[in-house]
Amino acid sequence: MSATAITPGSPPEVKHPISVALSDIRAGWQRRQLWWMIAYQDLIAQYRRSRIGPFWITIQMSAFVLGISVVYAGLFRQDFTTFLPYVAIGFLVWGLISTSVVDSTKAYFGQAGYIRSTSLPLSIYSYRTVASHVWTFAHNVVPVVILLVLLRVVPSPWAIILTPLGVIAIVLNAFFVCLWLGPVCARYRDIAPFVASAMQLMMFITPVFWMVDSLPSRAAVIWNPFAYFLEAVRAPLLNEPVRPFVWLVIISITIVNGFVALVLFGRNRRWIAYWVG
């Protein structure tokens, strides 16, 4: 907090929503120790409840992946050992995408106690939500890596750059979604359940556990933004080429998403404390 001189009688100039949003995001980043610690505490709390902590979710996910792979490899007449890593990575990435979108609806609504009694930058609630997902993701990565090693899957040499970039793109977009969708969900309470059921539907429309070539039409992949993020992370790991078009779409989505986030968060920021109450 920097001291600013006060000139009595002169109202402060009205700032543009984008500059309101940017200064809040900057102030939130300066408080990274705080939200990182809160996210870490969430994780530790899971470990205190059970010895393996968030790995329970990982085990659940692994069982699901195994079951789906057995059934779908049979249905689509695919080789099980090539199908299993495809589904495992698909599910790992989808887990990150879907929890990011679904949990963003609770990023502000669930934090009324903090928002109405501290004057912290409001972006910290988005940072904190995203940080929690990164922790969970880090746990879920473990069995997938083991699986890839066991099955001797050889990734493309580009995977070392492209896959982390894909994950970063997802995390960045998750942060933007939190900033614009979070406050809106605090205002309109019927949006959150709608988003949750929409994401459930999207899981089936996105090529998480089916191969794109198995479908006669590519519409579900072309018009589905999530499919691009999934391909950007998964294809290099399975030594498949990533079309430059995929990254073109991801960059475009990120720019639009970021712009929407800055404008909406900047406009709604002053109302958030009213809406969560």
Binding site: M1, A3, I6, P11, I115, T118, A273, Y274
Partner: peptide, 13 residues
């Protein structure tokens, strides 16, 4: 925490 709906607040510190 609450931004006034009319008028304004200035503070330092």
């Amino acid at each position: 925490i609450l931004t006034p709906t009319a008028g304004y607040v200035q503070s330092s510190g």
